[in-house]
Design a protein around this nucleic acid. Structure first.
Lengths: 347, 347
DNA sequence: ATCCTCTTTGCATTCGAAGTCATTTCCTTT
DNA sequence: AAAGGAAATGACTTCGAATGCAAAGAGGAT
């Protein structure tokens, strides 16, 4: 059995250009390491004069508590993983910025994972486990087993704009159904007759939900529609419009797009490739309320997601669950706001 | 002097729903903790049969090495901070996604900091020091003292699209001078006479550099110009155009914008607010090559930044410096590519 | 069987801060 | 002045993995 060395045997690294430790500060201030630790902890018992001495020493040595060491001993990394699949979507950067700033404000750091392909998910999760994140916010498609892995490991998750498929998971979504109903109702009352829909990629939860909601509502109101699939980007809006024009013999007078970017692509295509007036000849609506939707040239009629409220809710839900892991999985649905815009003749 | 406890006194957490440690795996496989550690380390000496046993145990217990503990002992967190000021810029999401994916591919994790206001920088840096990141990529304005702090702490930095002001720091930039020269030369040869410039916010490095390059070149070619300041966003392109039209009595026939987003705002404004044809009545050029610049409605004549090559260089430079901190600060300048587009009559 | 080398393995220690517990200090009260 | 109690402080251990070092084992040559 070995005998433990005393702290004073440690050499100071503070002066050697490296980073100071709590021991360095302790020695410099003539106190124990425990005192230094307490000094940086909220509500710990330290005499005012001692605190002063220690803080002065800390300043002098440029001491910053090592979050890695803190994480090890407290079992709280103060890290949250944010997993996002397609950052180039125009919609997600805003969400990411909001989430990051809100988490920062709560003293939580963001470990960002951006997926190039869905197949990378497992590698990403591997890293998520290794870093012992306190929680995760996910805006990417996960298999049920992958979601279950979070539960197994006791890592709280909040899904953003998607729900757990088969697995109960906390989530924050923008209500596709009410949004699409508002759009469809407006279009129908606006005397449109031939409807087209541009769907998102098949593996997008919100994409499918929006299209399904729109289709159902049209059906309820006795209207038929043609559906073509896009992939959420500008070019696919253009391509899908061309396809729909072919299918409907150019009779289409209302187009519902699963997101704004495709709506914008379709608007440009209608005007430039088909010489149509939007909305006189063709009404086009989108979903999301991204920045370009309000540009003068477009003024897309769309449903704006309440990003601030949604991110606020996501962060709040996650933090709640980090602090009280027993909380049940809750789904929060936010109604979007109808932006009347100028790209559709709504009643 | 206290006597050290033996590892077997530790209780297993592997079965308790928590996370398995290397001790749990060791006990399960009937070996020592050191063996487990070696087993997960590249090129360490472990007998094949032992390795098998350990890997099997690890799989069974869902063991993932604790990156926090590894970081503490090895003094390598494998974390890199990415500090970005305005994520909503349309240009940065692409950069961020590229950087994140490239770093991931190198086994490095990204700690993301998104600034709401410049004043937040110091709080962000505080966190950067605490997490003992191995390096940082910065696309935000830092004071010389803030840059110096990185050097003091031996944390390598690479600046993205900005250079160290007064402090030598590694950086990756897109060449504003050659880019603006190409644009200006094209415009001048294209028989334009009344020039306007929409600058970026005064605190933007690239903004100032681009405008200065354009202004100088115009001067060299004996052309005068009016300059109005925007803030890089769409609305400010519109506002600045109005201001310039007022200043030049609507005679302006060439407009140089410090970025694409303002160019797009100006194009829309020219068409919609002033009934002008672009480029027949007014040529407008931008800078960046963001997604919307290639949309059918705009087809902005601009300089596209080679984002892939730039991010690749930034990551490579950072990793080099993490491994060999003595490397000198290098500045790498990438030439942009002229996208001829359709928003300007170039010669 | 003996000796020597090379590979495997385990022990003990270390990274830096947090927290438990025992001890000391300080102040108040009588 | 003594006693009581609260506040302040320090010694020591702990988190989980990496690693220097010594011991043990395997294999080869003689």
């Amino acid at each position: 059995m070995a005998v433990k060395k005393q702290p004073e045997a440690l050499t100071s690294r503070a002066t050697a250009g490296g980073r100071a430790t709590s021991y360095d500060v302790a020695r410099h201030a003539g106190v124990s390491q425990s005192a230094v630790s307490r000094c940086f902890k909220q509500g710990a018992s330290v005499a005012p004069r001692t605190r002063e001495k220690i803080l002065a020493a800390a300043r002098e040595l440029h001491y910053y508590p090592n979050a890695i060491a803190q994480g090890l001993i407290t079992r709280r990394s103060n890290l949250v993983a944010i997993i996002i699949s397609n950052l180039t979507n125009l919609y997600y950067p805003e969400v990411l910025a909001e989430l990051t700033q809100r988490l920062s404000a709560q003293g939580i750091r963001v470990l960002l994972f951006s997926l190039a392909a869905e197949s990378d998910v497992d590698e990403v999760l591997d890293q998520v486990w290794r870093y012992r994140v306190d929680g995760a916010i996910v805006a990417a498609r996960l298999h049920p087993e992958q979601l279950a892995a979070f539960a197994d490991r006791g890592v709280p998750v909040v899904l953003y704009n998607r729900i757990g498929e088969g697995v109960p998971v906390a989530s924050v979504c923008c209500d596709s159904v009410s949004g699409e109903h508002a759009l469809v109702d407006g279009l129908v009352e606006g005397e449109h007759h031939v409807f087209g829909i541009i769907a998102g990629p098949a593996d997008s939860y919100v994409g499918e939900e929006r299209v399904e909601a729109a289709r159902r509502r049209l059906q309820q109101l006795g209207r038929d529609c043609r559906i073509v699939r896009g992939n959420f980007d500008y070019a696919s809006g253009d391509a899908a419009l061309k396809e729909l024009m072919r299918m409907t013999h150019r009779k289409m007078d209302a187009l519902i797009c699963a997101n704004d970017l495709m709506a914008i692509g379709a608007i440009d295509s209608a005007r430039i490739n088909f010489g149509l007036e939007v909305p006189q000849d063709l009404s086009i609506v989108g979903f999301d309320g991204v920045g370009p939707a309000t540009w003068l040239a477009y003024q897309v009629t769309t449903i704006r997601q309440p990003v601030r409220r949604m991110t606020e809710a996501a962060v709040a839900m996650l933090i709640e669950r980090i602090e009280r892991p027993e909380l049940s999985p809750e789904q929060r649905l936010f109604a979007g706001e109808l932006l009347s815009g100028n790209s559709a003749r709504l009643a």
